[in-house]
């Protein structure tokens, strides 16, 4: 009973706040001093509401005010399209570098820049980086009722059917690189409308396995539907001991491509400010993100809502980006063959 009244009170407070927000929300002013007092900080998200990028941003919007001087209001704006290239271009060329706009976009945008995808206007190295809130392990899983328990079992297999959502997603690129550079007999079946759809195809035995983000496959591993077999270099608790794709590569070229493909998984939820944002403001933002990532309440809520947190500071994030972008042109071309960037 007590619990309910607390909930109810919260709910009512929420409603009141919403109404208040409608009528007295403060307009964003031009940023002058270093403090955020009375300002509104906007987080631009490159995807529609409800997805992973959006949920991280909304969680951050809730806890950031606490860690910024002057406790500004933080709001989330969704700017979907072209797998977040639209939002990245906006942050790069349109948004004012006044510290009142920051943004988050696809972690694979570095690959898009490297392979010179049409429409890319941004240069990732020129953004004022804040850091990344999470990392992500990409894994390959196979249906548990199949006899493949190790990498060697898989090598011997005549054919393993992997369902994917199409070139440009880790569900496709990860197994396609493994097929090419490790030599598995994979048959890739692209065209599923979402990774959830691939999961259903596994359930009806239309396909034998799928690759993708560990976070999203974990419930199905726990339920015993699939078993994980290979991971990319970024590990997550629980799958540290899985074989890593780079160690399986037949040659140096394959290994190099795998490195580039998985580099950006270290910065799974990147946050940047527009290029030219003043250094003192950037410092405030970086400190706030770092402090938030250690905030116990923040971590507890993240855990409850199944958003894993693994903070990577700005310097390190930028290093990851440079590692991807500093490939020689001929290598870039090779990579473009196996890693597509797209919706």
């Amino acid at each position: 009973m007590e619990r309910f009244s607390a909930n109810k009170r919260n709910a009512w407070m929420g409603w009141t706040l919403l109404l208040l927000a409608i009528f007295v929300g403060t307009p964003a002013l031009v940023f002058g001093a270093a403090a955020y007092e009375g300002k509104v900080l906007t987080i631009v998200v490159g995807y529609k509401p409800g997805g992973g990028y959006d949920r991280y941003a909304r969680l951050a919007a809730k806890y950031l005010p606490k860690h910024l001087p002057g406790n500004p209001a933080v709001v989330v704006q969704n700017m979907p399209g072209a797998n977040s290239i639209i939002s990245a271009n906006h942050l790069y060329g349109v948004a004012k570098p006044d510290g009142l706009t920051i943004g988050t976009f696809n972690n694979g945008l570095a690959t898009a820049q490297l392979t010179k995808v049409a429409g890319v206007q941004y240069d990732l190295t020129k953004f004022a980086w804040i850091g990344s809130l999470a990392s992500d392990a990409v894994i390959l899983t196979i249906r548990s009722d199949l006899p493949y328990k190790t990498v060697d079992d898989m090598r011997k297999a005549k054919e393993i059917v992997i369902g994917t959502t199409g070139p440009g997603s880790s569900t496709h690129d990860f197994p396609s690189i493994l097929k090419e550079f490790v030599g598995f007999n994979f048959k890739l079946v692209p065209g599923y409308s979402s990774s959830a759809d691939v999961m259903l195809a596994i359930e009806r035995k239309e396909v034998d396995g799928r690759a993708g983000s560990y976070d999203s496959i974990k419930p199905f591993i726990d339920r015993g539907l699939v078993r994980p077999l290979i991971r990319s270099r970024t590990a997550s608790p629980g799958i540290e001991t899985l074989p890593v794709d780079e160690d399986l590569a037949k040659d140096a070229k394959g290994k190099a491509i795998m490195v580039v493909a998985s580099a950006s998984t270290k910065i799974y939820r990147p946050y940047v400010a527009p290029p030219g944002t003043p250094a003192d403001v950037i410092k405030l933002l970086r400190d706030a993100f770092a402090a938030m990532a250690k905030d116990k309440e923040f971590l507890a809520e993240a855990k409850k809502t199944k958003l894993s947190i693994d903070f990577t500071p700005a310097e390190e994030s930028l290093k990851v980006v440079r590692e991807v972008l500093n490939q020689p042109p001929e290598m870039a071309q090779e990579i473009g063959k196996y890693i597509k960037f797209g919706e």
């Binding site: 409608i22 009528f23 989330v76 704006q77 969704n78």
Partner: peptide, 10 residues
């Protein structure tokens, strides 16, 4: 009120 302040549409 609704679209600008509450929903923060860009």
């Amino acid at each position: 009120g609704l679209f600008n302040r509450l929903l923060h549409l860009p």
